[in-house]
Amino acid sequence: MNLILQTLADGLVLGGIYALAAVGFSLIFGVMQVINLSHGVIVVIGAYLALILSRLLAVDPLLTIPLVMAALFVFGYAYQRWLVQLAVERSSLLASMLLTFGVALMLRNILVWIFSPDFKTISPPYAFVHFHLGELTFDLVRVSALATSLVLLCLLAAALHWTRFGRIVRATAQQNLAARLCGVDARHVYALTFGVSAAFAGASGIAIGMVLPFAPPDEAFWTLNAFVVVTLGGVGSPAGALVGGLLLGIVNTLTAQYVGPAFPNATMFLILVLMLLVRPSGLLGNAFSPSR
């Protein structure tokens, strides 16, 4: 009984991190149907930025979140405006995916040049502390990563719902033409969305860097993870990412515990395929275009 509760709890904690790491990917996919294969590398860049900044400023890594998010927002905006958008216009959506893959390769190579291929870790003072809740054991750093993730996801959800920016993003995603007729600059909105998405990817990188040792080649995993979370939960909304992430976390730990620790990745992709077959729009559907 204890073991199953512990497994579920571990799964939820892990899932929170997965969710935050996928939400940006989901947003881009929802708003402009672009598959951003450089998503994972932005996550990893976030972790490296946090590592440098927290050492430089001698602050807790979580406090570097605003800086990292700001930097990556700018990067994301420029990246979409001057590269991805060009690819979409000149070629096709699918070809834009190849472009993002090319960018991922380049960025990964650049990371290796700057930081060497060695793995790095971010260790805040509470990195090794754990606490008990009843008979369950929680480790503080993972729980704080989960809390960060929940807070950020809620903020994003609120922003999408109640701010002018959120309304414009949603309008552009739902009815691109109508939104443009109302005077929305779609390119600007797309770039903004990309910026926000990169910012959140970077923030998740900080959480991940505190929990896991990270290295440039990890980017592939975080891109794949985003795929699964998004197909599981649904496209375009923080809620979808959260549901998908938490479910994935639980499935992961349950598989590891009861099938074998070697199998979580297998179940993860099996669920991806099954989910696509049964309900391609994810559990919560597409937040923007329910009819698709």
């Binding site: 904690v13 590891a256 515990q257 620790p261």
Partner: peptide, 16 residues
């Protein structure tokens, strides 16, 4: 306990 080649979490192994 066999782990896959890419691991992000070993909580279940540690619980065991």
């Amino acid at each position: 306990y066999e782990l896959p080649e890419k691991v992000t979490d070993v909580s279940s192994v540690l619980a065991a």
